[in-house]
Design a protein around this nucleic acid. Structure first.
Lengths: 338, 338
DNA sequence: TTCGCCAGAGATAACGATAACAAAATGGTA
DNA sequence: TACCATTTTGTTATCGTTATCTCTGGCGAA
């Protein structure tokens, strides 16, 4: 309703409470030494004026922003959301907030985003993936704050790492299929250059097939990330049309795997009787759809949790050199495969 | 690798480039009048020093932050993500960024979040929903910036509104079922006090049933938001156990509707033959699962787009008084219902 | 009584950019 | 060539908070 000409400042609050601005500042801090009587008088004065603390000034003067920058590929992805949640919970106790940005699976966009985020002077930065533009890399290296790459195990990390090997995770799935006698295995997705984790998974598939002396050429493209359920269904249609003797298919994500599954249902193809289907990510849908989906759980929440711990250790000086924390994804055997 | 003792400032860049700090400042703006030669010399100097613009100082001095605060209930929800995307795209052209926070469907958490966000002095704030704590409301009213409530049509809005009537949307679904001769209709979800939109939908269901002279008591609770697929499945199990003559069920969201659908599949209950299932949200899964889900599309992207336009108009002064933009959700008839 | 200690409060200056105003350089024209 | 309009650059002061140092008064120990 009433828009005051000018927002009140600490000086206004100080005047009303009859103290100095410095004391007002102290009253808004947790541990500062202000008597209880003074503090409550100040808070009351602040409230009556509708005073709202100005972080922009505080950040500048104290040279601290109390937030951690985080980049994820997509705002709408349960796996990355879990990582953010793990981070958020781990950082909350220290009063650190998260400033989130998403890259749309594009390392050019990541470059713009990282620069934007660094301008706001975060205390640390967490990025998804280990592949960046040269400029992004330079920005991160020179930022003078802890840098954590996640969801990957880069060969040449910028700083700290909390991730897993996408290739190894897919290899474990191939190994599983081979161990139950399945040899004609296809892979859906991971063709797009943008999707670095997708291409890693695809490369892991090819390497694993070759290691078993099997044909690694049953590769079905599935659009650019984020690969939708619809694209998974379309890809499955093409697979069934062109390579009908395929015994199992590994999809780059649970979402495309579910789409693939529905295509089988529409065509009356029995899963896993005629073809086995596996996904990646262990999204909720994998556990509840019929048949439930065999998949890989990459421990997304744990990634966030460990990254948060790492950040706190580095900021405390407890953690000296760059750390690499490698997690072991878990194969979830379910109904969509033997 | 090398952590410089102190980050370079504009003064350092100015010295190296042989100009005044003010000129450096201009060189970093888009439209500022700086000769091309000077600008490129400055940018080169900045680059060689590894200078990164400091927004905290800029924000304080210019009293502009160039970002819009947005609160959504959950980071991992395709509908809200679409709204954010619509907002983001609409604001990008004006150089406005989004500062995102999530409330976990909790108006207490919303209060904390709104205060945190306002401290950072956004140019406008967009909140999801029209129900807030008294303190949140006061904060928003006194913020002195445009406030937009979305995903709802509050009786007594704080400022601007871009939303739709959740109750009316569900009524249209009830009307549809009644028009095809279905009368024993149940509702899953919306019992939790936290989920304001869920309870609105449930209330809309009850009112619509009463308006048709039908029994509105087939209500199945389904946990606290965000209601999972699993909870939808559990609720459907209870519905089938306790009210086996139910002809149709409307679920509070597509995710719970899909869970309900899978429960029918597990039990060998034919959908829509024995029971029709409807959802809410028109998530991707609704269009692709088998059978596909009848649902309501609340135009989430459009909400974001219109909110962005509104913000720009208000900041330009084009929009005078508080605006209320009411959208009409679209009923999507699919295979899970007649 | 005297001294030292410490919690509580104030005074001053500064964080790094830029708004506002001022001056200098540039270019076109009579 | 002289002059005015425009563009480019510089100077000064300041945004709102807080780091840092200083000061005061109360209290206990010697």
């Amino acid at each position: 309703m009433s828009t005051p000409r000018k927002a009140p400042t600490m000086a206004d609050v100080a005047r009303l409470a009859g103290v100095s601005p410095m004391t007002v500042s102290r009253a808004f801090k947790r541990d500062a030494s202000v008597s209880d009587a003074t503090r409550s008088a100040i808070l009351e004065a602040a409230d009556s004026l509708g005073y709202v603390f100005d972080s922009t000034a505080s950040n500048l003067r104290s040279q601290r922003t109390d937030f951690v920058a985080v980049t994820i590929p997509s705002i709408n992805n349960a796996n990355f959301a879990d990582t953010v949640r793990g981070l958020s919970e781990g950082l909350k106790e220290r009063g650190l907030q998260i400033l989130l940005g998403y890259t749309d699976y594009d390392i050019q966009e990541e470059e713009r985003l990282v620069e934007q985020l660094l301008r706001r002077r975060p205390e640390a930065i967490v990025v998804t993936g280990g592949r960046h533009t040269p400029r992004t890399r330079r920005l991160l290296e020179n930022a003078g704050i802890p840098v954590i790459e996640t969801w990957d195990l880069p060969d040449n990390p910028v700083g700290h790492v909390v991730g897993f090997s996408n290739a190894a995770a897919v290899r474990s799935m191939v190994d599983h299929f081979v161990s139950v006698g399945i040899t004609r295995i296809a892979f859906i997705g991971g063709d797009a250059d943008r999707d670095t984790r997708g291409t890693d998974r695809r490369a892991g598939f090819i390497a694993a097939m070759q290691a078993h002396g099997l044909d690694p050429d049953r590769l079905i493209a599935a659009g650019t990330p984020p690969i939708s359920m619809r694209e998974g269904a379309d890809a499955m249609g093409r697979l069934l049309d062109t390579l009908p003797d395929t015994q199992a298919v590994i999809c780059v994500s649970d979402l495309s795997a579910f789409g693939a599954l529905t295509e089988c249902q529409r065509r009356g193809v029995n899963v896993p009787g005629q073809i086995a289907v596996a996904g990646f990510g262990d999204y909720e849908i994998a556990g509840i759809c019929v048949p439930s989906l065999t998949t890989i759980n990459p421990l997304p929440r744990e990634i966030g949790k460990r990254a948060a711990e790492l950040i706190l250790d580095v900021l405390d000086g407890t953690q000296a050199g760059p750390a690499t924390i490698a997690l072991e994804p878990i194969l979830m055997r379910r109904q969509s495969s033997p």
